[in-house]
Design a protein around this nucleic acid. Structure first.
Lengths: 224, 224
DNA sequence: CGCCTTGTTGAAGGCCATCAATATAGGTGG
DNA sequence: CCACCTATATTGATGGCCTTCAACAAGGCG
């Protein structure tokens, strides 16, 4: 219930990137690169674009008036985010690490969907996919214990990593705010899973993780 | 963390309604009435219909293997639920009280959306509306205190009731499972709001509630 | 009226948050 | 490349909010 002031909602706009306006476009015309921790768009801002992660990771979150934060989702490579139907964003989006995104104008997408039923169906499918994730996350936040949440999180990341080892781009604070916990509780849960032989770390890092026993990891979650 | 066995997932099918097959249809051909506590559809069941509440109230929820329940939403009059994009339901739906619903065949709706862009857009709008609710609920479940949750719940119900008094169709257990709390904590929070002069009860009932001070109620929540 | 379900209130306990100290990692400049 | 510094992560001690357990009260329905 702590009020966090610094490092929250830093007013980074396009002008804060540190290089000139002309050099802001990366490879392609509709691509853009955000530095670590910078805001991509803010809650309640007009939703002019839809985004796809080309490289890096994005967190989308809501804040309470006293600074409590709930991260709704992490968006990794190829994920689409900022897909609002209304005119304004319902989350704030920030780059977790240096992140390159592809941009699509919302209204052009909407026009395309109006004309093409396939596009419309894909739009609906993506929205439904977001909904499904939110529904599962409600169950996690409302009814799961700390270890279950962390196990579910690691399983989710492991699934999306594909490879045998995963490199988490987000900090413990991000994980905590995603799981509705504190950083200490997350740390303890990870340590517990480490002791139980579920996972180990690569080298001296805490973000490079290898899942040693996926079945055991799953047993720490309480899936239906 | 209690395992609830009875009154959960009771195997009520169409045949358990207590009256004959011929009398099951109510007013119209595509309407159906469910008695209090009966299942409308189960999680993982094929999604053959979309539903609209004509009268009554519906809860949609997920269960963990040990019986912990998370209600994702309550559906009141005119609300549409069971709107899945995939082939199977992601929640179980039950009638909170005696409830009449209108039925629409999913595939016919899908065909309609394929042909008519307006229908497609409405489908997307409704799905987005569900998503928005889920997103707000994640913030509640992840970061709000007990009193804040109950205040937010009462505000939500008050908003949808329209009238000055509201009659909650759901039990304290339902409310608790919606808010990620226990019935005792819900009861205490309501009592607290009662003592603080935010609300009062009508007659000797606990479900007929009058909000006396909406501004004060809002101050107990911690909205952005 | 009596039974059973639902809701309230109190007491005690547990899980997670908070506070605090230390350790480790990552970045910067010498 | 190492020393230094800061941000991040781990671990321990303590506390508080909510849960659990328990008893009682109230309401609903036969």
């Amino acid at each position: 219930m702590l009020v966090r002031t610094s490092d929250r909602r830093q007013p980074n706009t396009i002008d804060d990137f540190g290089f000139g306006s002309a050099s802001k476009r990366a490879v392609s015309l509709n691509e853009f690169t955000y530095r670590k921790g910078t805001e991509i768009y803010g809650e309640k801002e007009p939703a002019e674009h839809v985004y796809q992660v080309k490289r890096g990771a994005v967190r989308t979150y809501k804040l309470l008036n006293d600074g409590r934060r709930q991260i709704g989702a992490f968006h990794l490579m190829d994920d689409i985010f900022g897909l609002e139907n209304g005119v304004q964003h319902r989350f704030t989006a920030e780059a977790v690490v240096e992140t390159t995104v592809r941009l699509i104008k919302r209204e052009s997408l909407q026009a395309l969907a109006e004309a093409d039923a396939v596009v419309a169906r894909n739009l609906l499918r993506m929205t439904t996919s977001n909904l499904e994730h939110a529904e599962n996350h409600m169950l996690l936040l409302g009814r799961k214990t700390a270890v279950e949440r962390v196990a579910a999180f690691l399983a989710e990341m492991d699934r999306r990593a594909g490879a045998n080892t995963m490199s988490l781009p987000m900090s413990r604070r991000d994980i905590a705010d995603y799981l509705g916990l504190t950083i200490e509780t997350v740390s303890r849960a990870v340590s517990r899973l480490h002791c139980e032989g579920v996972l180990c770390f690569l080298g001296n890092t805490q973000r490079e993780i290898v899942i040693l026993d996926r079945q055991k990891l799953q047993s720490f979650d309480a899936q239906n």
